[in-house]
Simulated scan of single mutants.
Amino acid sequence: MTDTGVLGLIPARGGSKGLPRKNIRELDGLPLIAHSIQAGLDATAIDSVVVSTDDDEIAQVAETHGGRVPFMRPPELATDEAPTAPVISHALETLHSEGEEYDTFVLLQPTSPLRTSTHIEEAYSIYKGSGVESVVSAYPTYETRWKPSPEGAQKLNYTDASKRRQDREPEYVVNGAVYVVDVEQFLQTGETITGMTEIYEMTERESIDIDTPFELWLAKQILTEWETDD
């Protein structure tokens, strides 16, 4: 059995209600999924970039841009209701049956095109250097959150004092861009954020997650119009 260490896994099903065919929509001259494939290929921490898909066209596009598609995802794992964990398990088990053994996987959602190989490398470095079971990317926020109730609106965070925004300690929002996970721990728990976990911080701009036409438009503006020397 070949031990290749770190798997870069990109889950990309064909169906999408919010933005039909989003994984192969054009963004900055490339299909959306190609941005994640290239980031994975450029990351030296990753030994193999595999795309899990149920869709023949996505498979063809992925292979054209350097991703491997050694199997097709079964239809029952490609529905709107299908969670991610069984998709990961299917990929790991299928690759295992074909002689590929991995001790770590890096989950790369294709809807995070502003995540780069540098982000992957930095997240993986935290994973290796801290001895944790998982690392998850997130961006900081200082916004207050509220919920309605019969007693009126209730504050959910920063409830200890009415501090100015710049005086608050940040909270973190998971952005879905990078998950670095110990395979054994994942197989035991079925969770991508599992065991002792560290946060890898990205900016809010880098954290855009494309699920709607507006988010695709916004990503295009960032990639083509945003000043990069700020």
Rank of each mutant, 00 (worst) to 15 (best):
T2V: 10
T2Q: 08
T2G: 00
T4Y: 12
T4L: 15
G8K: 02
A12C: 13
A12E: 10
R13T: 13
G18D: 07
G18V: 05
G18N: 07
L19N: 05
N23K: 08
N23T: 10
N23D: 14
L27R: 09
D28I: 00
D28L: 01
L30E: 06
L30S: 08
P31F: 07
L32R: 06
I33Q: 13
H35R: 02
H35P: 04
S36N: 11
S36H: 03
Q38G: 03
Q38R: 15
Q38N: 14
A43F: 13
A43Y: 11
I46E: 09
S48Y: 04
V49W: 12
V51H: 12
V51Y: 11
T53K: 09
D54W: 08
D54H: 07
Q60G: 08
A62G: 01
E63D: 03
G66S: 07
R73G: 00
P75S: 15
A78Y: 06
E81M: 11
P83Y: 10
A85C: 01
A91D: 08
A91N: 07
L95F: 11
L95G: 05
E98P: 00
E101N: 10
Y102V: 06
Y102D: 06
Y102R: 09
F105E: 07
V106W: 03
V106G: 02
L107D: 02
T111W: 03
P113V: 01
L114G: 09
T116Q: 07
T118Y: 05
I120F: 08
E122P: 00
A123F: 09
A123D: 08
I126Q: 14
Y127L: 14
S130A: 13
V132E: 06
V132H: 04
S137I: 01
S137P: 02
Y139N: 03
Y142H: 13
Y142M: 08
E143A: 13
R145W: 11
W146R: 11
P148I: 07
G152N: 12
G152Y: 10
K155L: 12
K155V: 02
L156Q: 08
N157I: 09
Y158E: 06
T159P: 00
A161T: 05
A161V: 09
A161I: 03
S162D: 15
R165Y: 11
Q166C: 02
R168Y: 03
R168F: 01
N175S: 05
V178Q: 01
V178N: 00
V180S: 02
V180I: 10
V181M: 05
D182A: 06
E184G: 06
F186G: 05
Q188D: 14
G190Q: 04
T192L: 07
M196S: 04
T197W: 03
T197E: 03
E198P: 00
E206K: 12
P213T: 08
F214E: 14
E215K: 15
L216K: 13
L216A: 12
L218I: 03
L218N: 12
L218Q: 14
K220G: 14
T228Q: 14
